[in-house]
């Protein structure tokens, strides 16, 4: 475990906690895309099947359980909680799941390391994670008025992805650990999706004004 990987995991964890905190305490999911949250739940459910087959470390298992538990509880809150669900803006959150899920399924069937169920689901989850933020980014662009917590959530997720790339570079040089090129490409695509958001996030921070994305 290197510092980039740890920092990446911690920003990922922080992003989820910020979102849960917002939903749980303010009882509002305004500005949060249910589509993105459902895609993340699917990402974790398909990727972390290995908790039943492989043991890596206590840290690894605990983190996997946290990401599974938190993503499904966020979905539950937005869909089922009697107060939270009222703040869900269904009209704005119109991105279709299958636009992302079907191409990722197809791509996983075409480009993978091994043709086994577990490996295909893992590859699918890597592709899907790369694009799962899109409904959230579209929603931010549409609502324009972004509250602090939602802005921080997206910023922390972007930071997590950037730190993972530094982690792969570091692991390559120190451990000769090769991340498969599938992971590299998906990771780079995912990080690049945040570039635009990062630009406006830092601008608003520098000028000390409220974060707004251009229409």
């Amino acid at each position: 475990m290197n510092i980039f990987r740890l920092a990446g995991d911690m920003t990922h964890l922080a992003s989820v906690l910020v979102l849960l905190l917002k939903i749980h305490t303010i009882k509002s999911c305004a500005g949060v895309s249910l589509k993105t949250q459902e895609l993340y739940a699917l990402v974790f459910a398909t990727r972390y099947l290995d908790i039943f087959t492989d043991f890596i470390s206590v840290y690894n298992t605990v983190m996997k359980l946290i990401f599974l538990g938190s993503s499904f509880s966020i979905v539950w809150y937005i869909r089922r909680h009697k107060i939270v669900r009222r703040s869900y803006d269904k009209e704005q959150d119109t991105f279709r799941h299958y636009f992302l899920v079907l191409p990722c399924l197809l791509l996983a069937l075409l480009i993978h390391e091994k043709f086994t169920v577990k490996e295909l689901l893992w590859t699918f989850s890597i592709y899907l994670e790369a694009v799962a933020i899109l409904p959230q980014l579209v929603l931010l662009q549409r609502t324009r008025n972004i509250d602090n917590l939602t802005g921080q959530y997206v910023f922390l997720l972007g930071a997590y992805r950037s730190l993972y790339i530094l982690n792969w570079i570091y692991r390559y040089f120190t451990e000769r650990h090769f991340v498969h090129w599938i992971t590299w490409i998906a990771g780079l695509v995912q990080t690049l999706l945040y570039a635009d958001f990062f630009y406006y996030y830092f601008e608003s921070w520098k000028n000390n004004v409220k974060l707004q994305l251009p229409a």
């Binding site: 990987r5 995991d9 990922h12 290995d50 492989d54 890596i56 470390s57 690894n60 983190m63 996997k64 990401f67 893992w122 993972y164 982690n167 451990e175 000769r176 650990h177 090769f178 991340v179 498969h180």
Partner: peptide
């Protein structure tokens, strides 16, 4: 490469 087979990242 067994290092690669074991997916130790999250």
């Amino acid at each position: 490469n067994s290092n690669q087979d074991l997916k130790d990242e999250l």
